[in-house]
Design a protein around this nucleic acid. Structure first.
Lengths: 329, 329
DNA sequence: TTGAAAGCGCTAACAT
DNA sequence: ATGTTAGCGCTTTCAA
C-alpha cells in the first residue's frame, strides 16, 4: 500500500489525529508542529486516501454525470465544462452514457449513487416519476428539463424556437414543419409549443415525429418532408437537421433553394455542413458549469438541503443564420 | 445514512459477516440462510457501500480514463466504448480531460490514482519518462502509444499511412506533404516514418509542422501548402485536414482539383465535410474496449502484475476513399 | 495544543 | 456453516 497517515505521524513524531488536523484544520495546530508534519508528509509523498476520508465523512468528493449519448456532439462541450468546473472545486467527475435508453438512465443513477455526492442528469428520456424517485436517494441536478423541487438548468429554447420561426416567417415561409425529437423530451415540448405559438395564424406548422435524434432518422424523414409541400423546417437538433439535408439532397431537393432547414444546438457539425446550417446556439458549456455549481450548492452545502426551494437556471439562446435558410421558391 | 450491512444482519437474525458472505461467497453459506439474508436485503433495499468495500479490499472497482480533449470528435466513440466495457465488468469510469496539456495529463493521473484501480491514458503529449513514473504508482494502459513494460493498444497507423500514400502515388501524385501533429505524439512519428518510407524514391514528401491537432491550425497552414507546390497532403487527423480544406478553399485552391487531402481517424466530420474527406479509418471504439480489458487483465488479475510482460495490442486500420482525393492537376 | 479512542461499513482471517 | 475479531485509513469527539 501507499504511505498512510500513520507513516506521516511516525515520521513527524506526533499522533495521527494531529496529522489529520494539520491537514484539514491548520489553525488548530501549533505552527511549528504543523510545519514539521507538512514537511514529513511532503518527504514521504503522502496523499490522503479519498476512500478512507469518504468513509468517515460521508462525502466522496465525486460527482456523477449521466448523459444520453456521449457520441452526440451536443454533449462533449458540456461534459468538458462540467469536468473542469468539478475539478476546480476539488471534485472528480464520473461520466456515464445511457445509450439513449431511459431504463439505463435510471440504472446508472442508482449505480453512481453509491459513490458520488450527487449526480447531474442530462437524460431526456427518463420519466418525471422516476426522477422524483431517484432524487430521494441522491441529490440531483437536471439539465434541459424542469421539475419542481429539483434544481435544474435549462436552455431557453422557447425563445430560440421563436427566433428561428420568426426568421423563417420573415423570409416569407408560410408552410413550416417541426421535425420533432423524442416524445419524452422536455425540450422537445418547449420547442414544439413555442414554434406553434410563434406561427400563430400567420402560417401553419406541421409536426413530424417523434424521431430518434440522430442523422439517420433525419435522412429517413426527408421523403415525408419532400412530399409534404413545406418550404421550411425546424429540427429538434443539428443531427436531425443535417441528416435531413442529406436526405433531401439525395432526393434532388435543394437546400435552401427548395426547402430551408434550421437546426438546434450549434454543434461543430453545423458550421461544417454544406450548406452550413442555420441553427440555434445553445450555451452548452455554460450549462455544464452551471449544473455542477447548482448541484454543489445543494449537495455540498449545509445539511438542510431539501429545505430551500430548488433553483432553476435558464440560459439564453441565440439564432445563428447561415446558409441553410433562404426565401421560399 | 442509508441501510447498512448491520441492518440486514439484524433483519435476517445473523451476524454481519454472514451477510457479507451470503453476498460475495454465496456457496459458503447454507442455502436457507442465504435466502433469508437476500430476502432481508431486498426488503430493506440494501446496497453495499462501494466505499467501505474499497477500504477493506483495496479495490475500488473504478477506472480512470484520461483523454487529451473530449471535444475532439476522435474521443467520444472511444470513451463510450470504454465506459460500456467497464460497466459490463462492474467497473465505473472516471473521465478526465487534459485540455491538450501534458502537465495536466500527469496531474490527472495522480489525482485519479487515489480512487481507481488503474487508468487508461490516451494522452499523446506527456513524456515517456513521466509515464514510467506514473506507472509506478498505478496500473496504466496506454492508447495510441507504446512503451516497453506497459500494456498498450495502438492503431496500426503505419499501415494506414502506407495505404494513404500508396493511394496518392497511384493517383499520380509526386509532390506530397505531411501536415504533422504534436511533436511529442507517438502516432505522429509512426505516420511520418511510414509515409516517408512508402514514398521512397518515387516521390518526395515534405513535413509541415508540428501543429496543434485542430481545425484552426489546419486553416493556418493552408497558405504554406498552397505556396509549396505540393499536390497532395496527408494530415495528422481529420480536424487538421478539414481545417486545411477550409483554408485552401478560402485561398481559391480547389480540393481535390488542385490539391488532394487525406485525413486520419474517420470522425463523424469526415463524411460530413464538403468535399467528403478521404481518411484512414481507425477502430476507436475497439481501442476503448481493448484498453479497458487490457488494464483489467493487469490491474484486476492476480497480484503478480508486474511479472508478466506487458501486452501490446495493435488494431488494424483501413483507407476510406471519398471525395477529397483525385489525380493531380 | 495534542493524544486517546471510537467508529464509518465492510471484508477476511480465525474460532467455534 | 456461522460467529468473533481485527483492522482498512481517516475524521472527530472527548480528555488531558
Amino acid at each position: 500500500m501507499a504511505v498512510t497517515i500513520k507513516d506521516v505521524a511516525r515520521e513527524a513524531q506526533v499522533h495521527i489525529s494531529t496529522v489529520s488536523r494539520a491537514l484539514s484544520m491548520p489553525h488548530r495546530v501549533r505552527p511549528e508542529t504543523r510545519a514539521r508534519i507538512l514537511e514529513a508528509a511532503r518527504r514521504l509523498g503522502y496523499q490522503p486516501s479519498r476512500v478512507a476520508r469518504a468513509l468517515t465523512t460521508g462525502r466522496t468528493y465525486n460527482i456523477g454525470l449521466v448523459v444520453a449519448d456521449i457520441a452526440n456532439p451536443f454533449f462533449p462541450p458540456m461534459i468538458k465544462a462540467a469536468e473542469h468546473t468539478a475539478r476546480a472545486r476539488d471534485y472528480h467527475l464520473f461520466v456515464a452514457d445511457a445509450s439513449e435508453d431511459p431504463a439505463i438512465e435510471a440504472e446508472l443513477v442508482d449505480a453512481l449513487a453509491k459513490q458520488v455526492d450527487g449526480v447531474v442528469l442530462c437524460a431526456p428520456r427518463i420519466s418525471n416519476a422516476n426522477i422524483d424517485r431517484l432524487a430521494q436517494n441522491i441529490p440531483l441536478a437536471l439539465v434541459n428539463r424542469k421539475i419542481d423541487g429539483i434544481p435544474s438548468v435549462t436552455m431557453d429554447l422557447a425563445e430560440g424556437a421563436r427566433l428561428a420561426v420568426t426568421h423563417l416567417l420573415d423570409l416569407g415561409h408560410r408552410r413550416l414543419a417541426y421535425v420533432a425529437g423524442p416524445r419524452q423530451s422536455w425540450t422537445n415540448t418547449q420547442i414544439r409549443r413555442s414554434a406553434a405559438g410563434t406561427v400563430g395564424d400567420e402560417a401553419e406548422i406541421e409536426v413530424i415525429g417523434p424521431n430518434t435524434p440522430n442523422e439517420k432518422a433525419g435522412t429517413e424523414v426527408a421523403k415525408r418532408i419532400a412530399e409534404s409541400g413545406v418550404t421550411a423546417v425546424l429540427a429538434y437538433n443539428d443531427l436531425l437537421a443535417i441528416g435531413l439535408i442529406q436526405g433531401l439532397t439525395d432526393l434532388g431537393v435543394d437546400v435552401p433553394g427548395d426547402v430551408s432547414v434550421i437546426g438546434i444546438d450549434d454543434t461543430v457539425l453545423a458550421r461544417l455542413a454544406k450548406p452550413s446550417l442555420t441553427t440555434i446556439i445553445v450555451p452548452t458549456a455554460d450549462a455544464g458549469t452551471a449544473a455542477i455549481d447548482l448541484l454543489l450548492q445543494y449537495a455540498g452545502g449545509d445539511s438542510d438541503l431539501g429545505s430551500r426551494p430548488a433553483a432553476h437556471v435558464s440560459l439564453p439562446t441565440k439564432l445563428a443564420v447561415r446558409d441553410s435558410t433562404a426565401p421560399p421558391p
